[in-house]
């Protein structure tokens, strides 16, 4: 299986990864590099394994009964499935944003402060204020919420909630952010805001996004991986995937001929 040639130093590398749910194999021999310089999009039809694979990258599959991961996944050359790996620490370094915004039923401030407090990142109240403000600013939410930090996070609009979740992920200063269909529950304007945000965050974090929206993958990513039936069919520059894909399966999928 090819990995993209000529990529910058990878932030994460996966080699020959197989994932099983009980007897069923969900991922078959996937090898891929993810770099900090690019936003990487995972696309493919439902059930192709893209979300399953995304969840391997911060061991979210550990929580699924009967799930088994084979192969090697490294973060900066460190095996993330090694017994010495602290999973809580790993998930701080590799943050995740889900499909449905899931803020804690707490204040906006507490939503963002929760992670840094858990990881002991702030020495004082002033420290924490700064972390919260900086995370909300980077998530493009500060101006909208600075006067109501005490209000509940669940009382915001869907788009704001999703940006709050991104702020929450950013607050612990991660190296990688995984996004699983972050815009599928949002209206077009909120979606555009998130896409703009992803563009601003690019370069600072390695970002991997799973999306069903082909145009979104084309807009926000520089690298695109097409998954089908648990295999990685094609991984290339996004512009190549969407204008001149090499594999017939990729072409059929992105041009709406699949199935």
């Amino acid at each position: 299986m090819n990995t993209a040639a000529g990529s910058p130093v990878p932030k994460m590398t996966a080699r020959n990864v197989n994932v099983f749910y009980g007897q069923k194999q969900a991922i078959k021999d996937v090898s891929i590099d993810v770099s900090r310089e690019h936003v990487t999009a995972f696309i493919g039809p439902s059930g192709c394994g893209k979300s399953t694979f995304l969840r391997c990258l911060n061991r979210m599959n550990d929580t699924v009964d009967g799930a088994r991961v084979e192969g090697r996944i490294e973060l900066d050359g460190q095996d993330i499935y090694a017994s010495v790996m602290d999973v809580v620490q790993l998930r701080a370094r590799v943050g995740m944003v889900f499909q449905k915004p899931n803020p804690f039923p707490k204040s906006i401030y507490e939503n963002v402060a929760y992670g840094p407090r858990l990881h002991g990142l702030a020495r004082s109240r002033a420290d924490m204020d700064e972390i919260v403000e900086s995370a909300l600013r980077r998530a493009g939410l500060w101006d909208e919420v600075k006067d109501r930090l005490g209000e509940s996070g669940t009382a915001m609009s869907g788009g704001q909630q999703q940006r709050l979740c991104i702020a929450r992920a950013i607050a612990v200063d991660p190296e990688v952010i995984l996004m699983d269909e972050p815009c599928s529950a949002l209206d077009p304007i909120a979606t555009a805001r998130i896409e703009e945000l992803i563009d601003e965050l690019r370069g600072r974090y390695a970002i991997v996004i799973v999306t069903h929206n082909m145009q979104q993958a084309a807009r926000v990513s520089q690298k695109t991986a097409f998954f089908h039936l648990g295999t990685l069919v094609e991984y290339d520059d996004t512009s190549a995937i969407f204008t001149n894909p090499k594999a017939t399966r990729t072409k059929d999928y992105i041009t709406g001929r699949y199935g």
């Binding site: 082909m214 145009q215 969407f242 204008t243 001149n244 894909p245 992105i254 041009t255």
Partner: peptide, 10 residues
């Protein structure tokens, strides 16, 4: 309406 891609777009 269709947002064509790849060979369709070309």
């Amino acid at each position: 309406l269709r947002a064509p891609l790849a060979d369709d777009l070309r």
